[in-house]
Structure formats: structure tokens, C-alpha cells
């Protein structure tokens, strides 16, 4: 799995990071993400991830025209996934099938589900993060979703298990308490 010369050139600035290195870059290149649904924020996440070497399986077409005309492979040949996806990325309201590790991006925040999270809890949390936001904030939320997935690929994510959420909150984007489904609500 050694890095090819053009990959060393392209990802040199990531390889320089002590926490990444050649090994970490290889981990990023072998952590495919399945894009289950699209929104402006998801499109931003897709472009950030594709640029830095995360392979993507795009089930849904771009929402925003951000990548219009730019086939992912033209953006970065490494963005084409050749292996089964390890995580899912979707807008908050996505109701279809998700991989156990999933990042859902709403208009008001980002929810992350680790391997053992109850799907109903994830959906309830994601629903609580839906809502309108400024179009500039979509870029912020999409970048945050990409960061969460890159950290996951690099294996240094404290939220690797369980459910966590981040919410836009003036003047901050703060950690939010995940919403639990009825089966997991305290007292039940």
C-alpha cells in the first residue's frame, strides 16, 4: 500500500503532520465514504474529502452545483472508491439505509453516530439539528463533517463510539446533547 509519487506530491502537506504521516495518508486513502444524500453542506464535505484523498461512493447527485461539471475523478483520481465504504454521509433528514458509522449534516448542526449507535437515536438527534441557516454556514457545517470523517479515518476520534452532535449556536458552534429515541430515553 505504498504511496505513489504523485500522491506524495499531492498530499505532502498532510503527510507533514505528525499525527498523519505516510501511514495516516494511506489510512485516509483507504477509508471510503458513501454519500447517501446531498445538500449544500454535504456537497462541501464531499469536495473537501475528495480533495484530500478520501474515496467517495456517491449514491445521490450533487445538490448545489458546487461540483457541477467537476467529475470527482477529475477533481482527484483518488476520490473514486474501489473498496467497500466504511462510513456514511447524508443530510439530516435522510431516512434510508446507513452504515453503522454515519455523519448526518443538518442546517443547524452535525450529528455523528459510532458503531453501536441506535439508528432511532441518530435520527432523533439529526432531526433536532434540522432548520434554516445562512448559506455561508453550509460551508462551515460541511467542513466540520469532513473533519469528523477525516479524524475517524485517522483513528484519533474520541467520538469513535456512540453518538455526538455539534450545533450552530450564537456566538458558538457547540457540542449538543444527543436526542434519544423513546427506547433509550432515561426512565424507559
Amino acid at each position: 500500500m505504498a504511496l505513489r509519487e504523485e500522491q506524495i506530491q499531492r498530499y505532502g502537506r498532510q503527510i507533514l503532520l505528525r499525527e498523519v504521516g505516510g501511514k495516516g495518508q494511506e489510512q485516509l486513502l483507504h477509508f471510503p465514504v458513501r454519500v447517501e444524500g446531498r445538500s449544500a453542506a454535504v456537497d462541501v464535505a464531499v469536495s473537501v474529502l475528495a480533495a484530500s484523498g478520501t474515496p467517495l461512493v456517491c449514491v445521490a447527485p450533487p445538490a448545489d452545483g458546487f461540483l457541477a461539471g467537476a467529475v470527482l475523478e477529475a477533481f482527484n483520481p483518488d476520490a473514486r472508491a474501489g473498496e467497500p465504504a466504511r462510513a456514511s454521509l447524508a443530510p439530516a433528514g435522510f431516512g434510508g439505509e446507513l452504515l453503522p458509522v454515519a455523519v448526518l449534516v443538518g442546517g443547524q448542526g452535525v450529528a455523528f453516530a459510532g458503531g453501536t449507535t441506535c439508528r432511532d437515536c441518530l435520527d432523533a438527534t439529526a432531526r433536532s439539528l434540522e432548520g434554516p441557516s445562512n448559506p455561508a454556514e453550509h460551508v462551515l457545517l460541511g467542513s466540520l463533517a469532513a473533519l469528523i470523517l477525516q479524524r475517524l479515518a485517522l483513528g484519533f476520534t474520541p467520538e469513535g463510539q456512540g453518538l455526538s452532535a455539534f450545533r450552530l449556536q450564537a456566538p458558538a458552534l457547540a457540542a449538543a446533547t444527543p436526542t434519544r429515541c423513546p427506547a433509550h430515553t432515561a426512565g424507559n
Binding site: 506524495i8 505532502g12 505516510g22
Partner: peptide, 10 residues
């Protein structure tokens, strides 16, 4: 730069 240290690091 930046390939100087990239090569050394790898």
C-alpha cells in the same frame, strides 16, 4: 520545500 522534509519523514 515542502518536499524536503516530506521525503525525510517518509
Amino acid at each position: 520545500c515542502p518536499m524536503t522534509y516530506v521525503r525525510v519523514k517518509l
